[in-house]
């Protein structure tokens, strides 16, 4: 079987803890869909839950709020990966519950 666990961990660690133009706390908030300040909150929320509804105006508003394009790039990437990650974890937990075994913990710790 394929195994994305290590690569997924590297990806998440990179976007949240590696260097970037947005602060680590901004990236974490985007990843968690927990941004509170508008207009960035709307953009992040849409990316996480209704990405096809993102408009030019949403991105323009984020730019006008003072974010540069690199910061918007990073925050949108964090929001997308954060939501996909939550969905993935939810599904793995459901699979473990259905099969009565969780083989992730020991393999993750290798």
């Amino acid at each position: 079987m394929s195994d994305i666990r290590k690569a997924r961990k590297v990806l998440v660690t990179r976007i949240l803890e590696g260097g970037g133009e947005a602060s680590r706390s901004q990236r974490r908030a985007a990843f968690d869909n927990a941004e509170t300040a508008e207009p960035v909150r709307t953009l992040i929320h849409k990316v996480a839950l209704h990405a096809h509804q993102v408009t030019d105006d949403d991105v323009a508003a984020a730019r006008k709020s003072g974010l540069n394009e690199d910061q918007i790039f990073e925050l949108v990437v964090c929001a997308a990966i954060g939501q996909a990650n939550r969905q993935h974890d939810s599904a793995l937990a459901a699979l473990a519950a259905a099969t009565g075994r969780n083989e992730h913990a020991p393999r993750d710790s290798r």
């Binding site: 990405a51 096809h52 993102v54 990437v77 929001a79 997308a80 996909a84 993935h88």
Partner: peptide
């Protein structure tokens, strides 16, 4: 789920 969001956003 990641790439699709980015394509749209």
């Amino acid at each position: 789920n990641t790439v699709g969001r980015l394509a749209d956003a």
